[in-house]
Structures are given as structure tokens and as C-alpha cells.
Computed example of a mutant assay.
Amino acid sequence: MTEQQRLELEAATFRRLVAHLQSRTDVQNIALMNLAGFCRNCLSKWYVAEGKERGVTLDLETIRTEIYGMPYAQWKAEYQKEASTEQLASFAKNKPNE
């Protein structure tokens, strides 16, 4: 595999992951955080951070819109449910360093 092919495959895989997360609005960010240690917001922040490392200034809200498939505030209003006490406790105990 060439370096260009690797980059294209990684990009396609990332786009597929984002599309999957956009289609799974039933999966809450806190559940992702508690099970996998990252969520949609993490992906957005990582995207912005990688841009910064490469001299590309990105707006977090614009990137969140790309990751969520809609403005973040809209996604929260339409799909985000209140976290349970158990979810919040698990998050507090296992919160990863960003």
C-alpha cells in the first residue's frame, strides 16, 4: 500500500465512522464516553487540535456541525437525553484526560 492509499483509506474510514455516529442518534455521548473513552465532542476537539498542529485554524462549532451532521445545539435539543446517576458516576470515575 502506498502512503497516498493509506491516507485515502484512513480518510474514508473516518468519514464512515462519522456517518455511522450521525445515523446512531440513539447512542448518547455519555454512553460512548463510559464505554469507549471518547464521544462526538472528542472527535470534534481532536479534529480542531490536529488542524492547529498543522497550522490550520478551525472553528470548533463548525467542526461539531460536521461531526454531528447538524448544529450541536440542535442535536442536543433533538437527541440528547438526561444522563442517569449511574452514567454520571461512571463518567466521573473514568473521565479520560483530553
Score class of each variant (00 low, 15 high):
5 Q>G: 02
6 R>Q: 12
6 R>D: 08
6 R>C: 05
6 R>T: 11
9 L>K: 13
9 L>Q: 15
10 E>I: 08
10 E>G: 01
11 A>V: 02
11 A>S: 12
13 T>R: 14
14 F>R: 09
15 R>H: 08
17 L>F: 11
17 L>E: 10
18 V>F: 04
18 V>I: 15
19 A>T: 09
20 H>F: 15
20 H>E: 10
21 L>C: 12
22 Q>R: 15
22 Q>C: 06
22 Q>V: 07
22 Q>E: 10
23 S>W: 02
25 T>A: 09
25 T>H: 11
26 D>G: 09
26 D>Y: 06
27 V>Y: 02
27 V>Q: 06
30 I>G: 00
31 A>M: 08
32 L>G: 03
33 M>Y: 06
33 M>P: 05
33 M>N: 05
34 N>P: 03
35 L>F: 07
35 L>H: 12
36 A>S: 11
36 A>D: 06
37 G>H: 06
38 F>M: 14
39 C>M: 03
39 C>D: 10
40 R>W: 03
40 R>S: 04
42 C>G: 03
42 C>M: 04
43 L>M: 14
43 L>D: 00
44 S>M: 07
44 S>H: 00
44 S>V: 00
45 K>N: 07
46 W>P: 00
47 Y>Q: 05
49 A>G: 03
49 A>K: 14
50 E>R: 14
51 G>K: 03
52 K>R: 15
53 E>A: 06
54 R>F: 07
55 G>K: 11
57 T>I: 07
57 T>D: 12
59 D>C: 10
59 D>L: 10
60 L>V: 08
60 L>S: 01
61 E>T: 10
62 T>R: 12
64 R>M: 06
65 T>I: 04
67 I>T: 00
68 Y>V: 04
68 Y>Q: 00
68 Y>W: 08
68 Y>D: 00
69 G>K: 05
69 G>D: 07
69 G>A: 10
70 M>P: 02
71 P>N: 13
71 P>C: 10
72 Y>H: 09
72 Y>S: 05
73 A>S: 09
73 A>F: 06
74 Q>A: 06
74 Q>L: 12
74 Q>E: 15
75 W>F: 15
75 W>V: 04
77 A>R: 15
78 E>P: 00
78 E>G: 01
79 Y>Q: 07
80 Q>M: 15
81 K>D: 08
82 E>W: 06
83 A>S: 15
84 S>M: 12
85 T>K: 14
85 T>Y: 06
85 T>R: 13
86 E>G: 00
